[in-house]
Write a protein that binds this DNA or RNA. Structure first.
Length: 454
RNA sequence: GCGGGUAUCGUAUAGUGGUUAAUAUGCAGCCUUCCCAAGGCUGAGCCGAGGGUUCGAUUCCCUCUACCCGCACCA
């Protein structure tokens, strides 16, 4: 059998076959940015479409939105991001290890650390001669802000400062009242969106795992506080279904109950889902968090707007609590690619193929004439191609080289079916359909092709 | 951000202080071929960027950038 599959193998196939390229590559790249090529964008779009169908259109309690990346800076103060995405870090001058300065001070018994400025904390380190956990001298503290800052309007001053959103969730909270006013849904209901987010990661890497520009598929499900445990479990089940839709192997998935100390500032319970990536091992691809009423409450206080939900039965208005399932789209794409990447042996040669679920494959079918120097075969194949192309869209034409090469090419991009027009086709209007995973061939009438391939 | 490593056609690799940088595969075209990277011919395509040393640098040195491995960080 083959050697152990590495992430490099997958990255190299992704590049070679037009799934994923390094961002700004001809200029030497830009750390933490990757571009999707023709097949990558098709795969990604198939995933987002499946998600939208499953999460939004397939349910009657979900509402889709699409909010902006730039938001009023007050949003990020109210959400807690300005505080929590802003970490004071300090370095051990000898080991070069980096520590959260506020945590370090708290561990040493200092109080009200959160209220201190960076300068005050630095001063404290100096005066008290605080050492690193390894007993070494500490350098000067520095502020690390995970949020990208920009300016709205032509003047770059503090007044115009704005952030690129580090998550899409806040757009759902800021639109909560709008959607309630438009639709007045019964509780529980949810808002969902898919969109770009930006995080100024200290160290991006591992292919598209840790990115500075990323996409998130996320929803906020508004509930009665008393129901949170039940609803939490139900969304856990929905997540399982989602990973089945993605075709991810059960054995490569793992759930992790996040202990309180590691949870986000707003969360009362968090369960992360991990996928077993080649080279990296188990890494997070989705999270489920109970955010309580933290966000809406905070936005109500901050904005002064009434964000309470008024029950239709005339009960007391209240601020709903929230269950939030989040899926890292790029990480989902990466998991799907890694899961599909398969090496086997065919006729004594190594074969690489993507065992993608049919509905996610970027190309649904490839049509070829058996021989390209026989015009009658080519004409007939063109006809079949046109037929399928019109219906399915994602159909490829290939008449290059010999038939074996075409099969291997399609294997590498995960095309489930290869359709070949041969001399028998001219006689009885049947074609050969070759299966990606088994290489088995069946004869199918042209009239039945659509149902076979779909 | 620290330490280590790497950077040569799309991909995987070889190689060199000196004429035109190589191999495989892939890619494109033509021929051939009645089903699994077969065969023949042709073609395009590479030394990450910037400095320095040198008569001459893809090769040696420095800086930068990116990627990989560790550390730290990851609300």
């Amino acid at each position: 059998m083959s050697d152990k599959i590495s992430l490099d193998d997958i990255a190299s196939l992704a590049k070679r076959r037009g799934f994923i390229y390094q961002g700004s590559e001809i200029y030497g790249g830009l750390a933490g940015t990757w571009d999707y090529g023709p097949l990558g964008v098709a795969l990604k779009r198939n995933i987002t479409n499946a998600w939208w169908k499953f999460i939004v259109d397939g349910r009657d309690d979900m509402y889709g939105i699409d909010s902006t990346i730039l938001m009023n800076p007050k949003v990020w103060v109210a959400s807690g991001h300005v505080d929590t995405f802003n970490d004071p870090l300090i370095e051990d001058v000898k080991t070069k290890k980096r520590y959260r300065l506020d945590h370090l001070l708290e561990e040493q018994g200092y109080e009200n650390v959160d209220a201190m400025s960076l300068e005050e904390m630095g001063q404290l380190v100096k005066e008290k001669g605080i050492k690193s956990p390894d007993g070494n001298e500490l350098g000067a503290p520095a502020q690390f802000n995970m949020m990208f800052k920009t300016h709205v309007g032509p003047v770059e001053d503090d007044e115009s400062a704005a952030y690129l959103r580090p998550e899409t969730a806040q757009g759902m909270f800021t639109n909560f009242k709008n959607v309630v006013d438009s639709f007045y849904p019964n509780l529980p209901f949810g808002l969902a969106q898919i969109g770009r987010s930006f995080r100024n990661e200290i160290s991006p890497g591992n292919f598209i795992f840790r990115l500075r520009e990323l996409e998130i598929m996320e929803l906020e499900y508004f509930i009665n506080a008393g129901d949170w445990e039940k609803v939490f479990e139900s969304w856990l089940a929905v997540q399982h279904e989602w990973f089945e839709i993605l075709g991810l192997d059960q054995a490569r998935l793992k759930e992790h109950e996040v202990p309180e100390a590691d949870r986000a500032h707003y969360s009362k319970r968090t369960v992360d889902t991990f996928y077993d990536f080649p080279s990296l091992g188990f890494q997070e691809i989705a999270g489920l968090a109970y955010r309580t009423d933290f966000d809406l409450k905070s936005h109500q206080e901050s904005s002064g707007k009434n964000l309470e939900y008024r029950p239709k039965d005339g009960g007391q208005p209240f601020i709903p609590h929230v269950i939030e399932p989040t899926f890292g789209l790029d990480r989902n794409v990466m998991a799907v690619l890694c899961n599909a990447y398969t090496e086997d042996e065919m006729n004594g040669e190594k074969r690489v193929f993507l065992k993608l679920p049919k509905h996610l494959a970027p190309v649904k079918a490839c049509v070829s004439p058996l021989l390209k120097n026989k015009p009658e075969l080519v004409d007939k194949a063109r006809e079949v191609y046109g037929l399928l192309k019109k219906e399915l869209g994602a159909v490829m034409w290939d008449d290059n080289g010999n038939i074996g090469k075409r099969y291997r090419r399609q294997d590498e991009i995960g095309t489930p079916a290869c359709i070949v027009i041969d001399f028998q086709t001219l006689e009885d209007n049947t074609v050969t359909v070759r299966d990606r995973d088994t290489a088995a061939q069946t004869r199918v009438a042209i009239g039945d092709l659509l149902t076979t391939v779909e």
